[in-house]
Simulated assay, not measured.
Amino acid sequence: MNGIDIMLPHYGDTSYLKTAVRSVIAQDDEHWHLTVVDDSVTDNGLPEWFDSLHDDRIHYQRNDHNLGINANFQKCLDLAERDFVVVMGSDDAMLPNYISTVRRTTARFPDADVVQAGVEVINSTGQVVRPLTDRVKRSLYAPDTTTPRVMGGEDLVVSLLRGNWTYFPSLCWRRESLKDLGFRPGLRVVLDLALMIDLVERGGQLAVVPDLCFQYRRHDASVSSSLASLGGRFTEEHDFFLDIATRMDRIGWHRAAKAARMHLSSRLHALLLLPGAVGSRQTASAKVLIRHAFGTTKPVRK
């Protein structure tokens, strides 16, 4: 089916969700269909709000029970029907040219399996910011994105394992390319990176264009931030990178295996969070962060 499915898994703040939905409605290209999959556990008044929009391009559904991040994301992929699919964050926003930019890019690079267009970072109030994490990724790990290009193979995997410079909620995937793939069960933080590596490992290509068209929100209430403060993020990342290193060695991508074992940006992230954990006397989290940053021993599971 032609067009782009915007799949929006939701849990949490309804004001952010409404902002995200309004940003989709404001697109300058109408070749989209929005499906919101609500994983909330309490009544939030959203069914009535969506009914008030009177827009046949928007479909809202609520899960019978809480599925959790991974399963709800997978449900979004399973529900997609159109040629391309975006799994958008419910706290992010599209600029009006997102759909037109992606469609123009897929026409220019017909063999690309996924598109990463230009992204700016916003904070909890919607102001454009440049957090240290994003500045480091863009200056040290991201390739040159000032001109359109297509990437793939081991070079792309090495780049992503050094530091995942893509913004998952902004990625547009060719649905057919994800056939027989999906989010790895059990992952909550690196499920996006795992999906990308799985795709590239079997020959998938990423088209990168500089056109700014998406706003990615960073704030302390996000899932990744809350897990990071507890050290849980790094326990998951540690196990993931070791598994990927083994897989990369098996297929002969030894540079990628080395990058996975180093997981440099993940270690640096742990170091950045360490002062906060120490200052707030989160001893257990601090120990996990130290182990992950310096790679001394395997993080202790909680």
Rank of each mutant, 00 (worst) to 15 (best):
A259C: 11
L274A: 12
R138I: 00
R138T: 00
Q215C: 13
K137T: 07
A260W: 02
V115R: 01
M1V: 15
L242T: 00
S52H: 14
Y98L: 10
A20V: 13
T166I: 14
I99E: 10
Y141K: 02
C172N: 03
E30F: 08
Y216V: 02
Y141M: 11
A117W: 01
H254S: 13
R104F: 12
A260L: 07
V200N: 07
F168C: 01
L178K: 03
M248H: 05
A256Y: 03
L264M: 10
M88E: 06
A80P: 06
L191T: 04
S100F: 08
E176N: 04
K18W: 15
A228S: 15
V136T: 13
Q74H: 09
T147H: 10
L212H: 06
S225P: 06
G68C: 03
A277I: 06
D134A: 05
L272K: 08
D92M: 09
D51A: 15
I99T: 11
V136A: 07
R247F: 05
A293Q: 06
R250L: 10
D39L: 05
S90K: 04
L160E: 03
S265A: 14
L181G: 09
G231W: 00
G68A: 06
R82N: 14
A259Y: 05
G232E: 13
G3Y: 10
V37S: 01
A260E: 04
A286Q: 05
S90V: 04
Q205C: 03
R57P: 09
L230I: 07
S226P: 01
P275V: 08
S124A: 15
A112C: 02
T19W: 07
T35G: 06
N70K: 08
P47N: 09
K75T: 13
P210W: 07
V150W: 05
L274F: 14
R108D: 12
M196F: 11
D220G: 11
L132K: 08
A257N: 02
E154I: 05
R174L: 00
L161E: 06
G186T: 09
D39H: 07
N2C: 06
G252K: 07
